[in-house]
Amino acid sequence: MFEARLSSTALLKKIVDALKEILHQSTLDCSDSGIQLQAMDNSHVSLVSMSLRSDCFEKYRCDRNLSLGLDLRSLTKVLKCASGDDAVTIKSADKADKLQLSFESASMDRTADYELRLLNLDQEHLAIPETDYACVVHMPATEFARICRDLSTFSESVVIACTKDGIKFSANGEMGSVNIKLSETSKGDVSVQVEEPVTLSFAGRYLNTFTRATPLSEKVKISMAPEVPLLVEYPIEDYGYIRYYLAPKVDE
């Protein structure tokens, strides 16, 4: 038996919004310690890894490890029927083919129960190696979203260069070019830790989809090392994270 209750549906909506652009279907792995998800997009260029500890939930019970195959578009449709301040309980019996979602209004005078058909997904698990990132940058999540949006109007490719002086985002296209540079600030909203400078090129369209997680967190952490995938991490309050990995572009 798996049962988890969140006091606010808004958090679940934000998490699903952060995943659904990249993944249409995915398996949720539930265990005693919490909920995890790991999946690549269809083109195998980016990977999303989500972790939510059990103490994020008002009530959490998971008697045995369970994998729930979800259609995220269907889940989005169900979540649209709920108000952000509803409490939500998700429930699934062992070996069940359905996920139950119950929404309870804040005034507790309305309950709505939904059943979502579970999918049998054959999902590949990847081993993400421990990486010592040469550059780690923290910045406001809204600033990162704005930069990704602004750069994607110029070019399909975005170059991220990180040095001790700061982080620079560049795009160069037919209509012209753009360079946006952020330096470390004294108020601490931008911090840059650099062991060695790194410059990598990425597909801007993926960076843009990662910024769907912006409502989850005020800050985003960007980690880079030479010739390895970029890591963009959004914390989920104090209870977990959504991490996006993106393979760098390489010259032919």
Binding site: H44, V45, H125, L126, A127, A203, P229, A247, V250
Partner: peptide, 14 residues
């Protein structure tokens, strides 16, 4: 021109 490797090249399947 540039292209992207499959992520599996960086993260081996388990």
């Amino acid at each position: 021109a540039s292209f992207q490797h499959d992520l599996i090249l960086y993260f081996p399947a388990t």
